[in-house]
Write a protein that binds this DNA or RNA. Structure first.
Lengths: 110, 110
DNA sequence: CTAATGGGCAACTTTTAGGTTGCCTATTTG
DNA sequence: CAAATAGGCAACCTAAAAGTTGCCCATTAG
């Protein structure tokens, strides 16, 4: 039904997609669960429709949004799964680092 | 004692810093809590020492690592706080999206 | 004291990301 | 059907990122 359901995505891709102000703003707008057309997402932004289109594709490649063509418009909606995947990754990092006590001490000693 | 303790950092900066394979690898190596010199972090990587240095500075600007000069070497260590900040941000996004039920339905209706 | 090691700095090259313009096609709508 | 709307595609332009090389300075080791 939707476009890409890429099971699991490379965390680097996800973080890179999140590391841009415009895309983070798009994601936040889509965070209300409503699917929106490219045109709808392009108003209220200084950028051109094509720029927004590119950003949406980056988000889609990262699995953060999915698209569906409806008539002449293509609607984009946020995907929870991938945000959760990013969270899980950071949780893993955090957990790994938990075991690493005495990190500041390690600054001094060799 | 350490270099920058930037209270709170722009999420975009953090995600952008995480969105690079080399930097994510560096972070993972530092995730054991040991502080390492640039030279130490440069072996086992195809890149030059200067390239690694640049990546470390990007990580530092994002608050993900801190550095301390010890004699002739400068040691870098991971900072838990900023990873937690990123986690908190994603938690917020996730929580916002929780309220958004019927997202898929919204694909069909206007 | 003289190597050798660890880094900083700056200039430079190359690749990629962000963005624009122009044009063409498909779908609505009056 | 004609005009308007929504997008796709491709070429192009910049600016920033990633990486390199070269050189110089500080610190440590023989």
């Amino acid at each position: 039904m939707l476009n890409p359901s890429p099971g699991t995505v490379d965390p680097v891709l996800i973080f890179a997609a999140l590391g841009d102000r415009t895309r983070l703003a798009l994601l936040n707008r889509l965070g209300d669960g409503r699917a929106r057309s490219i045109a709808a997402l392009s108003i209220d932004t200084a950028l051109t429709r094509q720029a927004i289109t590119k950003h949406l594709h980056v988000l889609q490649d990262a699995g953060l949004v999915a698209s569906l063509r409806v008539g002449r418009e293509s609607r984009f909606a946020a995907r929870r799964e991938t945000i959760d995947e990013a969270r899980a990754y950071l949780d893993g990092v955090s957990r790994q680092w938990d075991d690493a006590l005495g990190r500041l001490k390690a600054f001094v000693e060799e």
